[in-house]
Design a binder for these strands. Structure first.
Lengths: 212, 212
DNA sequence: ACCTGAACACCGTTCAAGT
DNA sequence: ACCTGAACACCGTTCAAGT
């Protein structure tokens, strides 16, 4: 059986598959090569280093976001759709998210979402400086939300009811955390995301009305 | 010279020092041991694994946040101060931030910020469910902002004027990005952080006024 | 041009041996 | 109880050799 020839594209795809199957920690040049049925060093004919390969993973995941846009819709609806499209990463490539978020890309690959968002905001009448600031705020919120969703940041909402019960959290020292433990324990990610998204959009609307 | 005995505390401190000096990638049990002047395996008398050690790093960094609070101040001012205290991490431990944010803590160490924030929101009259939702939104925004600040997420605002000039970004395909490149290129982190923080706080105020 | 195995300088961790 | 070196099963990458 004549296997498809090795290529950067195939290597990146294999890397993403491995990450999603076994987690980002499991990734190694040797594992990827084994998955592709080639020697380790063959990879280096198409990719200069593991670091650059991970950049490729980040780019590939970003480029797979499916944006649907209706240029005639109100800008708030367009922003909503773009934010939700972005959130799909958390569902389609949950274990790759940390790689996406932790790589500083130097290519144009991750630029399409930025271009779309800026175009939307500018068409809504925002000036360049405002558009950039607003975009940055949305990105911060979305990235932070996805990290929570993917289970990587419960640093900041880590209380499990079981911890209270096990007395590993002192109810006297943390009264609010203790009494709200059931609420902290559960999280409807979509509802939380939409709540914050709506609040942000309303805040922008109010802000631009004020400064008019 | 009688060196202080090895301890979990000293090992964590050495790890943080190493991360801040050489970056999170440079960290290894062997490097930490060398920095402490002991054999690698000595570490394992105080720490069960590298993973748990990194949890310790995250906890230690979080526990170093200096909160100042005035219970008599308006809740919006208290939230502002807490958010800014959190942001100090990005300045004091920039290279450790990724570790802090990527560790799922199972201890009570990271709980103080959560407790304080919940107490503040509840004292402002928010119900438990609202307090938790609002807290989650702030945390998402803050975490996302710090990741940008620390240079780890320019995935989403990566355009440097130099890229445009070097034609590595096609001005025809990315007109907004190209024309706004100078704005995307620079970022006053404090101003951006404050802009979004203020917007969020105003949004919460408006939201709670609406639902009253 | 593409593939490869051997080799090098690293890892984290187990284990048995020391005090 | 604490420390340790040797050993094991891994890493990423260089290099020289193959086609």
């Amino acid at each position: 059986m004549p296997t498809e020839p090795l290529s950067r594209r195939r290597i990146v795809a294999a890397a993403i598959g491995l990450i999603e199957r076994e987690g980002a920690d499991a990734i190694s040049m040797r594992r990827i090569a084994a998955d592709l049925g080639v020697g380790v060093m063959s990879l280096y004919n198409h990719v200069p280093s593991k670091d650059v390969l991970l950049d490729g993973v980040a780019e590939a995941v970003l480029s797979k976001i499916e944006f649907t846009d209706d240029p005639d819709a109100h800008w708030t609806d367009r922003v909503r759709l773009q934010a939700r499209a972005f959130r799909q990463i958390a569902h389609h490539y949950p274990r790759s998210l940390m790689v996406v978020v932790s790589r500083q890309l130097h290519s144009a690959a991750g630029l399409l979402p930025v271009e779309r968002a800026l175009a939307t905001l500018r068409s809504a009448g925002f000036g360049g400086a405002d558009a950039v600031r607003i975009l940055r705020m949305f990105i911060a919120y979305i990235v932070g939300s996805l990290l929570r969703e993917v289970g990587v940041t419960p640093t900041f909402a880590p209380v499990h009811t079981r911890m209270i019960k096990a007395d590993s959290v002192d109810a006297a020292l943390f009264p609010e955390v203790s009494s709200l433990a059931p609420l902290l324990d559960e999280c409807d990610h979509e509802a939380e995301f939409e709540f914050g998204l709506e609040l942000l959009i309303q805040a922008i609307v109010a802000h631009s009305a004020r400064s008019r």
